[in-house]
């Protein structure tokens, strides 16, 4: 490629990437400034891209109702509980499918597990409601959502962990056996540390799904337990949507996943690139 062409392509690429960045960041920017606006300004016909007056008190008023903060806690407990359970089951199942495919039920069972992610969730909404309603803890509880979200997160965890385990050389385990470690010890000491970055990536994906889930939460919980996703639409005044409060609250709800991501991004990148480049 000639020098001139190279610069042209580079310039076009930069323009494209710039536009892309604006496109992805704009909703977040607009959400952030809307959170500071007055209700009147959010409803003006011509949208303003910079608040005329700043109303930081919006962030206080969203927590006026104490159950609103509690909803973030509930969401956190449900997402974390479900992630731990998905990861535990997915790691064991993934290991079995990676190392002992025949004994673990073969490809058919693995694909059946994956197929649980393929139907539209709304198709099982009503049956699931009656199913969980019949359990001792009912639908309106943290445990019901923790278990329900396994339907979506366990297949993901199983399949991703299976791939990570396949990439972890079997010979390392065999070397450990010859060193005198039992299969369980070899798994805990050798194989598990190798797939740790993968486990962290998987747990992020599971956690974010459970944190953001709305459809099932809306039907299942709401009285004893609330998730933050079903609290957001409640910021209304009569028939008027209080956009500023909805944005302020959802901005607060963005903080935990962003914080987690920043904390774990080093592992995430390693986990997501595992298997691309063999190390």
């Amino acid at each position: 490629m000639s020098e001139k062409n190279y610069r042209l392509v580079r310039t076009l690429l930069l323009i494209f990437l710039g536009l892309w960045t604006v496109l992805t960041l704009f909703p977040i920017y607009f959400k952030a400034i809307t959170a500071f606006k007055s209700p009147a300004e959010t409803n003006s016909t011509i949208p303003s891209f910079w608040p005329k007056e700043w109303h930081p008190e919006n962030f206080v008023s969203v927590f006026a109702e104490s159950s609103n903060f509690q909803s973030l806690v509930d969401s956190f407990v449900i997402a974390s509980g479900n992630t731990l359970l998905s990861l535990f089951l997915g790691t064991l199942a993934g290991y079995a499918f990676a190392r002992f495919p025949k004994q673990a039920g073969g490809e058919n069972l693995a694909f059946w597990i994956l197929s649980n992610r393929m139907f539209p969730p709304v198709a099982v909404l009503i049956p699931m409601f009656f199913l969980f309603d019949a359990t001792p803890w009912g639908t309106d509880s943290r445990i019901s959502l923790i278990i329900l979200y396994l339907v979506f997160n366990m297949p993901l965890a199983t399949w991703l962990m299976m791939v990570f385990f396949r990439d972890a050389p079997r010979e390392l385990e065999e070397a450990a056996y010859l060193d005198g470690w039992t299969p369980l010890q070899a798994f805990m000491r050798i194989t598990l540390p190798l797939v740790l970055p993968g486990m962290i990536s998987v747990s992020m994906l599971c956690w974010i799904f459970a944190w953001n889930e709305y459809l099932f939460a809306n039907l299942f919980v709401g009285t004893d337990v609330k998730t933050y996703t079903i609290v957001i639409p409640t910021f209304t005044h009569g028939s008027q949507t209080l956009w500023n409060l909805q944005m302020a609250f959802s901005l607060m709800a963005m903080l935990p996943p962003v914080a987690l991501f920043i904390l774990l991004r080093r592992y995430m990148v390693r986990g997501l690139s595992l298997g691309v480049v063999k190390g």
Partner: peptide, 9 residues
């Protein structure tokens, strides 16, 4: 082992 099979971590 032919691949050495050293524990990388």
């Amino acid at each position: 082992f032919e691949s050495y099979a050293l524990y990388p971590h």
